[in-house]
Simulated assay, not measured.
Amino acid sequence: MDDQPLQKIAISGPTLASLIQRFSTSPSSLHGLLFGHVTPLPLTLSDDDDDTSSSATLLAIVTGFLTSPSFHDSSGTVLPSSLPTSSPLLGWFSARRRSPLRPSMREFSVTSSLSSLSQFSSQIQNPNSISSESSLFPPCIFLLLASPSSSDHHHSHVHTHEYRAFQFRPASLSFEPRSLDVVNIGPAFRGHYGAFAPNSNLPPLDCGPHDSPMISDGGDETMGKMKQATKDQRELNQCAEGFEVGRLSRMMGSEAKNYTEGLEELYQKMLVKIENLSGLVEKSSAMVIEQENHNRKLKHKILRSAASE
Rank of each mutant, 00 (worst) to 15 (best):
L114Y: 08
G224T: 10
R97G: 04
Q233G: 06
L83G: 04
N295G: 00
Q7G: 10
S26L: 03
S70R: 12
R106E: 07
Q238E: 15
S94K: 06
L173E: 12
G191I: 03
L101S: 10
K231R: 14
E244K: 08
T25E: 05
A17P: 00
K299L: 00
L144G: 05
E265D: 10
N128M: 08
L89G: 03
G36Q: 03
M223D: 11
E255M: 05
S86M: 03
R190H: 09
T230V: 11
P204Y: 10
I274K: 13
L136R: 15
P100I: 06
G218K: 14
S149P: 10
S254V: 09
N276S: 10
R96V: 13
L180H: 04
P148K: 13
L144H: 11
L45Q: 04
H31Y: 07
K297T: 00
L19K: 00
T67H: 03
K8F: 09
F168V: 03
H155F: 05
D2L: 12
K273R: 14
L277H: 05
T85C: 10
S131G: 15
R190S: 10
S172P: 04
S29P: 01
A195T: 14
T222S: 15
K299E: 01
K269H: 05
L43S: 09
A60I: 01
P80A: 08
